[in-house]
Design a protein around this nucleic acid. Sequence first.
DNA 1: CAAAGTTAGTAAACCGGTTTAGCTGCTAAG
DNA 2: CTTAGCAGCTAAACCGGTTTACTAACTTTG
Lengths: 337, 337
Amino acid sequence: MKITINDIAKMANVSKGTVSRVINNKPEGVSEETRRRILKIIDEVGYVPNSNARSITVSETKTIGLIIPDVSNPFFAELARGVEDCSSEYGYTVFLCNSDMNIEKQKNYLNALLEKRVDGIILNTSGDFNDKKFRDKFYKINIPVVLIDRKTQDLERYKGVFIDNIEAGYKATKYLISGKNENIAYLAGTYGIDTTMKRLEGYKKALTEASIELKPDYIVYGEYSIKSGYERTLSLMKGHREIQAIFAGSDIIAIGAIKALKDMNILVPDEVEVVGIDDISISNLISPSLTTVAQPIYEIGYKASEKLINFINNKSDYEDEFLPTKLVIRNSTRRRT
Amino acid sequence: MKITINDIAKMANVSKGTVSRVINNKPEGVSEETRRRILKIIDEVGYVPNSNARSITVSETKTIGLIIPDVSNPFFAELARGVEDCSSEYGYTVFLCNSDMNIEKQKNYLNALLEKRVDGIILNTSGDFNDKKFRDKFYKINIPVVLIDRKTQDLERYKGVFIDNIEAGYKATKYLISGKNENIAYLAGTYGIDTTMKRLEGYKKALTEASIELKPDYIVYGEYSIKSGYERTLSLMKGHREIQAIFAGSDIIAIGAIKALKDMNILVPDEVEVVGIDDISISNLISPSLTTVAQPIYEIGYKASEKLINFINNKSDYEDEFLPTKLVIRNSTRRRT
DNA sequence: CAAAGTTAGTAAACCGGTTTAGCTGCTAAG
DNA sequence: CTTAGCAGCTAAACCGGTTTACTAACTTTG
């Protein structure tokens, strides 16, 4: 028996239109006296307007959807925090969705978000749409979307907030080269994903520039997880003891790699150097602390949300944005002289 | 120019009631043939029903709110993942809210969630309501709430999913005692919070049981953060070099403590042992790896969501639930013989 | 003082759905 | 053959809001 705007109207002996004006702080059409009277009643009976009812006429929900692979991954947790902070500052509430890099799950979430009529979506995509009909439908609906961290061929039409991944891969690899390493592996994340491939490009660029031969064996794909980093490192090092340095596709992977190296009694950084990408907060806590190409993770989330909200309200243009990265030198690499 | 149920009805030459039945898979009142025809049209034009419109008549939104202090804290990230997983399995979508332990923020989020007519709320409370009027209003609305991890006097009426914090504190302290330590500090989290005080009880119980004198100086309150753990450890150890072991109120605090001890050149575990509570995933990655009283964090989140959803649908009773903890022995404590 | 303008408010239409009462035409039962 | 029952559907009311067109009363202006 929820209390509605009609109840308030009756109690105050006014029409519900008048109550509506008071609720929405519309200045016209209500005298100060009745306004106060209505507000008092609202306060007394504890009336809470139903924003869903509102949303169907004003066609906005002040709600956005955030789709990421997994909040329990520190990188995405930090991203999510940035998104949520900005969103709430602008009066938006955010739906959290964990896609697990599963395209089917992502589709289900997108559908749910569309049904809930979110005003926009921030998407860390799990790859191309496999369901073309769904893609067409999705495109047709034309909901504002801002990509985050990763691009996808299929979603070319959408802009987003990223880092320059080529540069990031380049920086990491170049730093390893500066340590007089020649046999440098790229312990990559998921094959085919934008970030993975761009970082590869940077890796190649740095090697080429230094006239170091590119060895296909040194490039190993896996997933963006500790486990994957651990396992691939074991098998990689088993076959290639000559490797002197590992450029890990993310800090999470690097953490797995370091663990594997420890288990194999290979000293980090003395025997093998490791560099990651991301600079998640634990990277400074593990031992040895991780040298990494830092992304402004929180800011990426924050800016993505801001970009989305501006776009929703047509306040601004809608372009790709690339935030700067920075090499953070810690103890998984040797001192350079 | 969104397409609505009316448009579909017109296209199919039926009333919108019929379309509604088809959308909701109601078996009665529509022939197989028209059902197929309508579904085909829906598919072709890419119609997505508006669940907000739906929600105002069926008075449920299939939406729940999750309020936690901070997703970027690994403990809460894991919790959130558990909540979201369960919720999505049951067809619910979850709003993520970061309260930052700020009671005012929490109030604003609660208000927003009420306006959005969430079906229920999972709350890691940020303390008692300071606004009594709001509390009364909130109570009156009588929305299902499940507490998680922490209780509060004010919210006694609500049940939730927890661990036995007295036992957890007891286990941790007892294990430190078993290492022949007598000067054991409790590096607590926020003063007054349920978990903090219950763990204190456990700490006291273990000391009393072992006939170790309780020294007020050895109990230090702070916050549940690395920074706080770090700072309090520095000042604690400066004044009390005789301390042999630290029971940290959480893993996050323990991580800060270990960092501080390192900076003071105090060896862990040789000179000072450290035990935490939580077993967040990094606890196994830091060095030395952390001995800790493990909580089933993900399960707490998952069960809380399940409890809430069952309660929403009146399927089950609604009682407190305490999940088991387990001492995980790693390298921040010495080998016991 | 009349005309015009402003203010405060109402009633009704509308948003996009669900649900109920009732109608039509057919089949099965008595 | 009548009647009851049912399947298939429609029209209209309803959910809880917003918005628009309109009116009545009062104020300002020339």
